[in-house]
């Protein structure tokens, strides 16, 4: 498979900001710290990481919105650091903001975006109608984006991204706020473009469940670095020897029970919830301990699962448990 997007040693440092009255200064931040990636044709490639990991900075550099301090970005053979203006002619980009389209109707947002992607008026209208139909938005075509729910608005922005075919799509959290029907429409549309035109998709997400189900490969980012890059199942094999035990206590853990007190050393605590990663036989023992005897009365619920990408992320040394979403 040929390489579509080649990123080498990308560095971007935000300068330190001097403190103003009442607000302390912020130190210099390396938002991307030597990132290298290779995305192949037809892949759905994910960038996974918590808030502040450098995903958005990386995407801005890929789409020509921001110049890196050092490093190179090549998309389909074009040097985008030297020619950032070419990015718009290669990449369809769905950003997180919809400010520019908010006051337009769904139909006009899609049509205008297509026109600005260089389509002739008639082509733009034809593609607009096709994309709105495909995503189930025809009924909302005459409504302004502002008046739609968050998920519908996101879907309308996604529709605008698709009008005017591009070989590469860069989607920054495309399904945030969407209901399952809309999500399915998005992934079906992406799959169709991949099957018919060999489209390549670069997806930013902090939703681990979605990452596992839709991505071919994923790069896990933390503090501006790629800490792992593999298929979701390949990544999960790294923690294959472990089983995840989730314990949900009614009020709080009964630490007076010695078995529970002993487990606490292995647990990550999130309020009433404990998460433990254990070898299978240890997990069995732990479950036996909490479901038998005094601890059981304090237990609300428990689950035993094979590891997810979240566990991989934690096992790789990621520590920002807050930034990842399971939904």
């Amino acid at each position: 498979m040929s390489t579509v997007c080649l990123v080498r040693d990308l560095v971007k440092t935000y300068p330190a900001a001097r403190g103003r009255r009442g607000t302390p200064g912020t130190p210099e931040v390396r938002a991307t710290d030597g990132i290298s990636l290779e995305v192949r044709r037809g892949e759905i490639f994910g960038l996974l990481g918590p808030n502040g990991a450098g995903k958005s900075t990386l995407v801005r550099q890929l789409t020509g919105l921001m110049r890196p301090d050092a490093g190179s970005v090549h998309v389909l053979g074009h040097d985008l650091v030297r020619h950032p203006e070419r990015a718009a002619r290669l990449i369809g980009y769905l950003g997180q903001e919809s400010t520019a389209l908010d006051e337009l109707t769904v139909a006009l947002a899609a049509e205008t975006t297509g026109r600005l992607r260089g389509l002739a008026a008639r082509e733009a209208r034809v593609e607009r109608d096709a994309v709105l139909e495909e995503l189930g938005l025809t009924g909302l075509a005459a409504r302004p984006l502002k008046k739609l729910s968050g998920g519908q608005r996101r879907l309308a922005c996604f529709a605008a991204t698709l009008v005017g075919e591009r070989p590469v799509l860069v989607l920054d959290e495309p399904t945030s706020g969407m209901d399952p029907v809309a999500r399915r429409a998005v992934w079906a549309a992406v799959d169709r473009r991949r099957a018919e035109h060999g489209a390549t998709v670069l997806l930013v997400t902090h939703n681990v469940i979605e990452a596992e189900t839709v991505l071919d490969r994923v790069a896990v980012l933390e503090h501006g670095r790629v800490i792992a890059c593999d298929t979701p199942s390949g990544l999960k094999e790294r923690v294959a020897g472990e089983v995840r035990v989730d314990l949900m206590w009614r009020d709080r853990a009964p630490l007076d029970v010695p078995e529970v007190a002993a487990l606490r050393g292995f647990a990550q605590e999130f309020g009433r919830r404990w998460v433990l990663r254990l070898a299978p036989e240890e997990a069995r023992a732990a479950v036996a301990a909490v479901t038998g005897g005094a601890a059981f009365a304090a237990l609300d619920d428990f689950t035993l699962t094979t590891p997810s990408l979240e566990d991989v992320y934690l096992a790789l040394g990621g520590n920002a448990t807050k930034g990842l979403v399971k939904a």
Partner: peptide
Amino acid sequence: GQLRAGGGLDHYATLPV
């Protein structure tokens, strides 16, 4: 001012216009 502050300019900047 609002477009710039809200990131709306990115929309136009990522189109070949």
